[in-house]
Design a protein around this nucleic acid. Structure first.
Lengths: 238, 238
DNA sequence: AAGAGATTGTGATGTGAATCACATCGCAAT
DNA sequence: ATTGCGATGTGATTCACATCACAATCTCTT
């Protein structure tokens, strides 16, 4: 597996595929454009395809009756996402919001099945990719449930470092702006709570701001708060 | 896919496999006994195999520094579980507690890979199984995070109905005893909170007790509380 | 049948986080 | 400069749930 050097940005979740197999997958998809602000799919739409994000940014969200909404995943260039399950008429359970103009490859589940059928090595890699995605969900689950809101925030900051972090001396700059509200929606808290928690982290010198970007100065202190288990970077992402 | 009739118990998560493929999987595993009270594996053990539960009951738990522990999954006869991921030295992130004397089939990841390689149709079914397991985690995530502790409890009761429920006229009896503490550990609450919430549900006639078993009398009211989306029964389980 | 230990039930109190209500800041459009 | 508006910052209040403390009950053992 190709592995991320320290200051690399955007390690795609498809890193676990070999070049050849990634190419095979790319051969069966058709390209599609989606504008920032649009939706790739909605909750309740049929879920019979995967998406490969060639360019742009897409987040999966879930909202409840009261209109409160949660950001569950954020995907970037090179990431693949979507649902595969054994139900004939399976439905998406999330909304896919396009937050930056995107180019996506659409993979029909049928076509994928044929590919898996034909190429044993691809099937094995695909299984590992699915396992990776599942564990990513599980570790996030753990982080958000087990250590209160401060723990959830710290874990999210660590994940952001892994996804958007750029080394700067001892510090890590999160090279993408997130508003307090967005962070709040990622951890199921209110923007006010995030604001107060961030203020605390700043006061204790664990993070600071630099042109509206969050700079993590003491990664280890963040890790302590959310009882980080130092799981592989490819897994511990947003 | 074979589908559960209303009063059937223990619909295994391997239902999505065809008989033939299930047999193939069974052929590559070796049998093992595990006593109630023992552990099949611990957090941090190498994770290079899957488990097929032939008989008994096993739960996956996670505990934090303060010793508080969460029950994440409960597996029964016919269920398969374990981790598959692309890391060479992957570690288990949960503890597997054997709660009833069990017989398990152990499947080495290596052997599984060979099987997937050889049998395209099995690879496709396996992929769907993994997708199902992932969605199960995601829906549980949603239920536990989004609707407060009462929502989490109601969702858990619904899941217990799907896994252990027996129709009794209009009602559903959960044919397995769970203590308040166990329920609490499933939703990340305290036993006192569970006790009070259950008392409320009893008072409003939504559930009742019958020889220490929980009887759900108004499933729809439970569904309302946790904004149930009526996802497939095979998915909405403990 | 008695006693120990686990489980349930319930009040009082503490605490983290949501909610509400505003003030302030930064910035783009006019 | 002025207005508008989204984002940030902060106090006061409310609410959900944990914690503590203890009594009651149930269940298993011998």
């Amino acid at each position: 597996m190709r592995h991320a050097e320290q200051p690399e940005l955007h390690v795609a979740n498809t890193e676990c595929f070999s070049e050849g197999n990634l190419r095979k997958i790319q051969e069966i998809m058709y390209e599609m454009k989606a504008e920032a602000g649009s939706h790739l799919f909605w909750e309740g739409d049929p879920a019979d395809r995967l998406y490969f994000l060639k360019q742009g940014r897409i987040r999966l969200t879930k909202s409840n009756d009261e209109g409160k909404s949660y950001i569950l995943y954020v995907y970037n260039k090179g990431d693949m996402f979507g649902q595969v399950d054994p139900f004939v008429h399976s439905l998406n359970s999330f909304n896919a919001e396009v937050t930056e103009d995107s180019t996506v490859g659409v993979i029909q589940q049928k076509d994928l099945e044929v590919l898996l059928w034909q190429h044993g090595d691809l099937a094995v890699e695909f299984m590992k990719w699915m396992g990776l995605m599942h564990r990513m969900t599980q570790t996030k689950f753990r982080d958000l449930m087990m250590f209160g809101k401060p723990g959830a925030l710290c874990s999210t900051l660590i994940r952001l470092c892994h996804t958007y972090g750029k080394q700067q001396g001892e510090d890590i700059v999160i090279t993408k702006k997130f508003t307090n509200s967005e962070l709040a929606d990622m951890i199921g808290a209110t923007r006010e709570s995030v604001n107060r928690m961030l203020a605390d982290l700043k006061k204790s010198g664990i993070v600071s701001m630099q042109q509206n970007l969050i700079v993590v100065k003491k990664l280890n202190d963040l890790k302590t708060i959310c009882q980080c288990e130092n799981c592989p970077k490819d897994m511990c992402r947003i």
